[in-house]
Every structure is written in structure tokens, then in C-alpha cells.
Design a binder for these strands. Structure first.
Lengths: 124, 124
DNA sequence: ATATTTGTACGAAATAAATCGTAGATAAAA
DNA sequence: TTTTATCTACGATTTATTTCGTACAAATAT
């Protein structure tokens, strides 16, 4: 089983999930918008992620091309599971209500959630 | 600002939020159900949490009594905020749908969430 | 009264995570 | 063809986190 990504690794994964195939530079530049760390730090982290099995890479060219080895949904599922267990006493409901209570969710999104709710209930 | 609790600290906080005032032994015994670490490990962690300002304690008696210095809701709010930002591209909706998709939420709870949804929409 | 248990303090080791610098190769620019 | 820029590899450092052993005091049991 691939290990749980660390916080930094998750930042990188997010970028890769969004962009698909990337070079270290791609990631580093995107990361630079929110973080102020050196290029080799990003490189090193991605190399480690590769060793851990979090990323695959194509080494055909000098500039390696990386891509995610684990899916976004699957990863989120595992993270949420763990998060609910350790921070919300195992209750997904509590997490959901806390997340919604934050305020920053538009009417449209709330409706989407409602529709999703209907769908789940029907399956029960 | 009190720092973000680590994973181990969160396990301890969860227990304390549930029990209120506790001794190290209380926490350690509860922790023993899910973890297999020594008593002094729990002690040390709680001492560190005290120094960090995560816990307060009453030292009047030999056996110190600890209690949470930060509220459960406030902490969860911060954690969710951070979690949504790093793992869900800032979209609370995505997190909510992932959490609900897990399957383990009862019909009753889903209804509670629906009611909460109504309430939020009315406030908009 | 003495031995055992239970408690805190505290240093330190073990482990994990994040960061960076330097070397050396290749590619691109001048 | 030099020089400059760009890449990877990799060791090393720094910082954070988790874990535990030992010392010593207080309470409890024998």
C-alpha cells in the first residue's frame, strides 16, 4: 500500500492532479505562488514521492516527466477516513456539518449537495 | 495563537474533549485501546501540549488534572479549513461529497444534514 | 517501618519531514 | 566554441514528532 502523503506531498499531488503530466519546474512554479522554498526542495520531494510510489515518472528525456501514481478520489477517501477518525470521533456527519458551517459554500453548491443527499438516500 | 495539534496530540485532545478533566492515566488507558505506547510517552506528550498551550492543568495535587485549553469546535474549524485547502483545492463541497460518499452515514444523520442545509440556505 | 506502586520531570534517542547546497551532465544561448 | 542556464543526484542539515528510560518524590500496601 502506498503510504499516506505528508502535507507537502499533498500540495504537490494537488497540483499534479490538476495538471496531469508535469516537470519539476511546472510544479515548482505553481508552488511558488503559495510557498517560498528552493527548486531543489521541490525536486527532492518529488524524487522521494517517486521512491515511495506516490508518483511515476518518465525518464526518457533529460527533463523527467512526473505523473500521479495514486488517484485523487482514492487518496481523498483515505484521508477523509483518517481525518474523521482522529478529529471527529468517527462521525462523518460532524465533519460535514463543520465544513458546511464555514459559510463559504455557494447556493449552487449547497443544491448540488442536496441532490447528492437525495441520491444516497434513495440507494438505501 | 495556539499551534495546530499534531496527529498524536489530536488523539489525546479527542479523549479530553469527551471526558472533560482528566489525569494522564485516564488518557493513557483510553489510548491503550488503540495504541500500544508507554505511560511516559503519554505523560510527555501531555506535558508538551501543556507547554504549547493546548492543555491547561491543575497542579494542586500530586496527580495533575488536565483539561483542554482550546475548544473542540474551534479546533475542528481550523483543521477543516486547512484540510479543505490542501486536499480539496479549497472546495468544501468536494470534501463534503467525499465524506458522504463513504457510505457510513445513517438515514437519520443524512436528514440532520439536510435540515442543516435548509437552515444555511435560509440565512443566505 | 519497609516495600511496592504511582506520579512527575527531564534528558535523550529514534524516526520522520522539510530544506538546501554542491557536483556534474546536458542543452541552449552568445 | 565558450559561457550560461537547466537538470538530476545525493549528501547533509535542520526542524518536528514520537517514544522511552531513569531519577526521585509521594502515596499506598504489607
Amino acid at each position: 500500500m502506498t503510504p499516506k502523503p505528508t502535507e507537502s506531498e499533498l500540495e504537490i499531488l494537488s497540483i499534479i492532479w490538476q495538471k496531469g503530466k508535469v516537470t519539476v519546474r511546472d510544479v515548482h512554479e505553481k508552488l511558488a505562488e503559495i510557498k517560498d522554498t528552493g527548486y531543489t526542495t521541490t525536486l527532492k520531494t518529488m524524487q522521494i514521492m517517486h521512491v515511495k510510489g506516490l508518483l511515476h515518472r518518465d525518464e526518457k528525456n533529460r527533463t523527467h516527466v512526473y505523473f500521479a501514481a495514486i488517484g485523487e478520489k482514492v487518496t481523498q477517501k483515505n484521508l477523509v477516513e483518517n481525518f474523521v477518525a482522529t478529529a471527529f470521533g468517527g462521525s462523518a456527519k460532524n465533519l460535514v456539518m463543520q465544513a458546511l458551517g464555514q459559510g463559504n459554500t455557494s447556493k449552487e453548491e449547497l443544491d448540488e449537495i442536496r441532490a447528492f443527499l437525495d441520491q444516497i438516500e434513495n440507494e438505501k
